[in-house]
Design a protein around this nucleic acid. Structure first.
Lengths: 163, 163
DNA sequence: CGAGCTTTGTTCAAAGCTGTACGAAGCACA
DNA sequence: TGTGCTTCGTACAGCTTTGAACAAAGCTCG
């Protein structure tokens, strides 16, 4: 019997469906990805972001921000990828504190081999089932949400009205 | 430029927005939860599921299935909660292989203290910003997705049309 | 019954992730 | 120029998660 009151029942249902399905979707995509490529979801995203960046390189901090990774997690992630030859790390020319992750040729190759499978997997598990209105709705909702959370994260402070 | 071709651009945008915002949302909720309760998102969900189950107890497998946890992860999760007194573990009467997790009084109390804060956090970070049509859309989309993935998981086999 | 196959949950080692503490730079302003 | 504050990324210790290997029951059919 419901501790769930305080979220009206249609919203509670939405919330649960969203959580559970997302969880399943992410694990499914990870599994597929690993089945045909030796990459993690995280690895894949690093490769995508680097491949799109000018010079195929990004500052650690920038990368961490976009991936929604803690700094230490990113350090770990990148050194793991470095060991496997997917990226290299260079000192940042204009800020001697910083370093940047750079996509290697091997990394780009790996990405280009993995991408078709991964995208197919995204399509079959998620996108093929959505009509255009639904896609539009998701985009609207999650764009807005992402913007709000990004903003909230920047301006410190714990703003969920608890008292 | 883009390895992203093969997903039309509106869908690619939807996909990215969804991934990033979800990631941010989950971390935000974890942080809030931990800030006012000593619980993890996982802990919280275990407590909710047990509190709703008849007899406030569930088989390990059942729980793992609903949480989308691997068996070993659930074993670890439950023993951690057991150490903290939130649940206990009993042998299953009718199947001597099995065991069930049982909610303790302390667990229930902890949940009832944490729930209002957590639900407030879900509201302010997500739900308050959604109009009814959006809620309906999310429910429809993720319900369907969840059902499909649940089914796919059951009937083994790797069905993402790769070849 | 009882020989094999399946299901349940745990264990263990290896890998991943978090938070805290730091060292090294930059930056501001007297 | 130098003193203190901030930002960048890393290091390390400890916890979490994963996957493979298992033991213990159940189940099926001859």
């Amino acid at each position: 019997m419901g501790v769930t009151e305080s979220l009206d029942s249609t919203r509670a249902a939405a919330w649960r469906a969203y959580i559970e399905a997302s969880q399943r979707l992410f694990t499914q995509l990870e599994d597929d990805l690993r089945a045909d490529s030796d990459l993690t979801f995280a690895d894949y995203h690093v490769l995508v972001l680097l491949s799109e960046a000018p010079g195929q390189r990004l500052r650690m901090g920038e990368l961490a921000g976009r991936l929604v990774f803690s700094p230490s997690r990113l350090t770990y992630q990148i050194s793991s990828m470095q060991r496997r030859g997917l990226v290299s790390k260079e000192a940042c020319p204009d800020d001697r504190r910083g370093s940047e992750a750079v996509l290697t040729a091997a990394g780009l190759l790996t990405l280009s081999e993995a991408a078709p499978h991964h995208l197919a997997s995204v399509r079959t598990h998620l996108m093929d089932d959505l009509d255009d209105a639904e896609v539009a709705c998701l985009t609207r909702v999650f764009d807005r949400l992402g913007r709000r959370l990004r903003a909230a994260g920047t301006t410190s402070s714990n703003t969920h009205a608890t008292r």
